[in-house]
Amino acid sequence: MALSQARLRPMRGEDLDWVCACEAELHAFPWTRGNFNDSLAAGHELWVWETENGPEAAPLGYAVVQRVADEAELLDIGVAHHAQRRGVGRALLARLIDHACEHGATQFFLEVRPSNVAALALYRSAGFETVGRRRGYYPATQGREDALVMRLAL
C-alpha cells in the first residue's frame, strides 16, 4: 500500500455502504447512515481516504470534519481494519489538518474516549493537547464515558 499515492476526496452516496460497514466494525456505538446523511445536509465535510489499487481506487478510511469560522473539528474518523497499523490513520489525519489550514483554520479540535489508547497516542503525536473533558459524553456498555477535548493550534 503506497500512502504517497493516497488521496482525500469528498465522500459520495455510493461510499455510504462501505463507510457504514466499516464504522460498524470499528465502533461499539457507530454512526448510522442517518448520521452521515445529517452531516452531509449540515454542510460538514465528509471525506474518503483512498489509494490506487490496480485499475480502481480502494478506500482505506473516512472522516467527517466541521469547519466554522477559523476552527475545524473532527467529528468522526475511521480506518478499515485491513489498513490499520500501517500509517493510514496518521496520513489521513495529516491531510485533514493540511486541508483545514488551506481553508483558513487556525485551530483543530476533536473529542476522544480516554479508553481509546491508540487514538490518544496518534493525536498526541500529531501535536494535539488535551484542553478539557466532557463528562458522560459517549455511550458506553455500562453507563457513559467521558470525552477528552483535544486541540491543535495550526
Rank of each mutant, 00 (worst) to 15 (best):
F29S: 12
A153F: 11
W31I: 09
D146R: 03
H27N: 08
A80D: 15
L46G: 00
S115G: 05
T130Y: 10
A63G: 13
W49F: 07
G136H: 08
L92G: 01
N37P: 02
A28H: 11
R113E: 06
A147N: 04
L40K: 14
I77L: 07
T106Q: 11
H44I: 10
E102Y: 10
E145P: 14
E73D: 13
P30K: 03
D76G: 08
P114R: 15
S125V: 12
T51Y: 13
D38V: 14
R95A: 13
A105T: 04
N35M: 09
A41R: 09
F128E: 00
P114N: 03
E23P: 07
H27R: 04
N37Q: 13
N53L: 13
F109Q: 02
W47E: 02
P114Y: 04
R67W: 09
L96Y: 13
A28F: 11
R151I: 03
F29N: 13
A83K: 01
W47F: 07
G61E: 02
A24M: 10
E102P: 10
A140H: 01
E73M: 15
I97H: 03
F36W: 11
A41V: 05
V149T: 14
D70S: 11
A83E: 03
P114G: 03
T141W: 04
S125R: 07
A24W: 15
F29Y: 07
G89T: 02
V117F: 06
V48S: 01
L93D: 08
H99Q: 14
L60T: 09
L110M: 09
V149S: 02
G78R: 01
G87Y: 00
W49D: 00
W49N: 00
A119M: 02
G43A: 06
L96G: 01
D38S: 12
R85Q: 08
G104I: 09
E145L: 03
G127D: 04
T130F: 04
L96V: 01
L148K: 07
G89S: 04
E56L: 11
I97F: 05
Q142M: 05
I97L: 05
H99T: 13
H27T: 03
W49V: 00
T32N: 13
G78L: 08
A83D: 15
V88S: 03
